[in-house]
Computed example of a mutant assay.
Amino acid sequence: MDIRQLQYLAALAREKHFTRAAQACNVTQPTLSGRIRQLEQELGVPIVERGQRYIGLTAEGERVLKWTHLILDNWQSLNQELGQIRSRKGELVGRLVLGVIPSALPKVATLTNAMQQVHPKVGFTILSQSSEEILRNLHDFSIEAGITYLDNEPVEGLLQAPLYQERYCLFVSASHPLAQRSSVDWLEAAQESLCLLTPNMQNRRIIDRAFTAANAHPSPRLETNSIMNLLSSVRSMGLASIMPEYFIDVLGKLEGVRAVPLANPKVEHAVGLVAINREPRSPFIAALFAAAKTL
């Protein structure tokens, strides 16, 4: 058994398709299939359900996959620590994979910038994921850290570092009748032609709860999993949308768009950095949380 075999198995479980898994690992499909068959022979158990296409893992394969994720995570942490030791200056060199809820994507640069100020040779892969995907991917080690809600998800037992409070505004075109208001009630907002994130997003579930608390039941004209699509829909289609207040500053001057604070009820939630709490702690995770505390 070797690391490559485990990497191929993890990729197959993630992609649920032999060809896509092989492409992700930069090998041919026969190579990936052959190495996984070798792993089955070495362990003496069937790992993959056999068929004309990928069906899934066997019960034994699911157990092997859990150990695979754990071994790969520790192997990566070991390489990070040894890389730091090998470096002449003891600096971190490598890449971190972060899962980030869509509403926090414009804000993530403040964290990555703080990290790079101290560790300029660390790169990042930023993935837009729902809060549920972030929790799942943390536990199967396909991401190393996440930025998600701290008070709306089961994050107990994870390392946590608050980053900011998310508050909400109604985004409308500059010519909209509500554009010059100092605030808008949630009940009023429900009467507008709305574009919102899709219901699987935690941000949308927060918004839906606020509408329920205001005894309002909107019917969105458009739903999307893209924040940029929400903004373009406000600008181009004349729709209204509900997005975090900080977009006003982080995205720069939004030409032709106004953000009006929402009230009655007042809604705000903590957003922060999360990672698996384990020892020994990866040098990258330790450095990332140190950077988060400086914000």
Results as ranks from 00 to 15, higher is better:
K107R: 09
A109F: 02
N113H: 11
S128Q: 13
I147D: 11
N113G: 08
E153R: 14
Q117G: 04
Y164M: 12
V155T: 14
F141V: 08
V122L: 07
S130T: 14
V122I: 10
K121R: 03
S128Y: 08
P162G: 05
E132S: 09
G157I: 08
V100I: 12
N137S: 11
Y149S: 03
H119I: 03
S142T: 14
S131T: 03
T112S: 05
I147H: 13
A145W: 14
G157D: 07
A114F: 01
G123C: 00
Y168R: 15
P106E: 04
H119T: 05
T112M: 02
P154R: 12
Q165A: 13
L163T: 13
Y164S: 11
A161Y: 01
E156I: 06
H139Y: 01
S128F: 10
V108H: 01
P120A: 10
L158Q: 04
Q117S: 03
E166L: 09
P154E: 11
Q117D: 02
V122S: 06
I134A: 05
Y149N: 03
F141G: 05
A145G: 15
T110S: 15
D151V: 09
A145M: 14
N113F: 04
S131E: 04
I101Q: 00
S128A: 14
I134N: 09
C169K: 12
A109Y: 04
V122K: 09
E153N: 12
M115F: 08
E153Y: 08
I134G: 07
D140F: 00
R136P: 10
V108C: 03
L105K: 00
P106C: 03
L158D: 05
I143Y: 07
D140Q: 01
I126T: 05
D140Y: 00
T148P: 13
N137D: 13
D151L: 10
R167N: 06
G157W: 06
K107V: 06
T148M: 12
I143F: 06
F124K: 03
F141Q: 08
Q160R: 15
P154I: 10
G146R: 08
V122M: 10
Q117W: 01
L170H: 11
K121H: 04
P120R: 10
R136Y: 11
N113Q: 11
T148A: 14
G157P: 10
R167P: 04
K121Q: 04
G146T: 07
N137L: 05
V108I: 08
I134Q: 07
F124I: 02
E144D: 01
E166H: 07
A161T: 02
L111H: 10
T125R: 14
